[in-house]
Amino acid sequence: MSLLEVKNLRVTFDTETGKVEAVRGVSFSLGHERLGIVGESGSGKTMTGRSVLRLIRPPGRIEADAMTFDGQDILHASEREMRALRGKRIGMVMQDPKYSLNPVMTVGRQLTEGLRLRDGLGRADATAKAIAALEAVQIRDPARVMEAYPHELSGGMGQRVMIAMMLIPEPELLIADEPTSALDVTVQAEVLSILDGLVRDRGMGLIFISHDLRLVARFCDRVLVMHKGLVVEEIAAAHLMEAKHPYTRGLLNCLPRIGGPREPLPVLDRAGF
């Protein structure tokens, strides 16, 4: 049985000027594999990811024909049941650690909070677990990072802290929403390899949201291409470069190549879809 099953997901925002549909009927299923979701800004990929955690802020509404996680109905689950899933069994890494970590709490407090509050661990046990998690994301001086505030960390370190925080409860599914977009290219590679190793070792399911086609092709098993709230193409990552859909082809044509012709990149032709 698959880990996550989503059928005809719609996310609607009721605004004063009428309904805005951010996601207009997305279906996919996910096993213990790595699924990439790509698309332009505003294509609905982030909203799709957050819907799985039911973290769409009002006035946004989530509707679907079915949404199950490990056989459990998460569309109609109570808020209490959702809280038990979040953090424990489903985690999410967001784009920019500068905003996704609480600026006035030490890294240590943010890391141990879940362990102490939810799992009722003592201070020493929680600290030991948190330090182990920081070591797992290759932070060299974990004891000192525990004492630090987020603004004292670099972007790459912050994102590793974020990943460590989400991996502490050993979730079965991790949603990574552009986890490397805010990082330098060299740091990106490191963070990705850490993420890659952890997902592989622990056999987690991963939803990797990105607008970087090449990255997704290299990193994932399967790719959903989203456009205007719809999935326009689903394809094995290895075959992404041979995609058929005109939109995917258009995106691929816009990629710059090292050593390629030095002409302006083509503009995405939106007439075809």
């Binding site: 955690l53 973290l55 899933l85 979040r86 953090g87 784009q95 996704s100 909070e113 879940g114 974020m162």
Partner: peptide
């Protein structure tokens, strides 16, 4: 965004508001 993080961690709403946001 750090409020979303706290919610993703499964923190109860009172803690999200009175600890994470209030600080």
């Amino acid at each position: 965004e750090y409020i979303t993080t706290a919610r993703v961690k499964g923190m109860p709403e009172w803690r999200v508001i009175w600890v994470h946001a209030m600080k």
